[in-house]
Amino acid sequence: MHELSIVMSIIRIAETESAKNNAIKVEEIELEIGDLSGIEITAFDFAWQQAVRSTLLEHSKRKINHIPGEGQCMDCAAVFPMQQLYEPCPVCGEHFVSVQKGKELRVKSLVVN
């Protein structure tokens, strides 16, 4: 359950950024989670519910932007959607694929007061 560490890191970022802005409450938090980031959303939700209790994220609205995977073939340069890390290039069938999108795991923004 590395999702718990991930949620803890998000709480720390929210705390640090809120403190910088003298805010005591986060109304909204916007996250970017790529589909290939290694985050299991059900586990993430579960960890979130446990971990945000009595933190400044406890009552925050959480917005998650899911970012679909995108790969580029290192052989033929084709760009294509990727659901799994082991997918071959649909054009030439090679596996030399570099992941362009979908690995994101970011705190995008906070709405505080």
Binding site: I13, E17, N22, S109, N113
Partner: peptide, 19 residues
């Protein structure tokens, strides 16, 4: 901390694992 009561949007743009 001292705090104000107006809403602020903070563009964090930070990798969760940056630390």
């Amino acid at each position: 901390h001292d705090h104000s009561h107006s809403k602020t949007i903070i563009e964090v743009e930070k990798d969760v694992l940056y630390e």
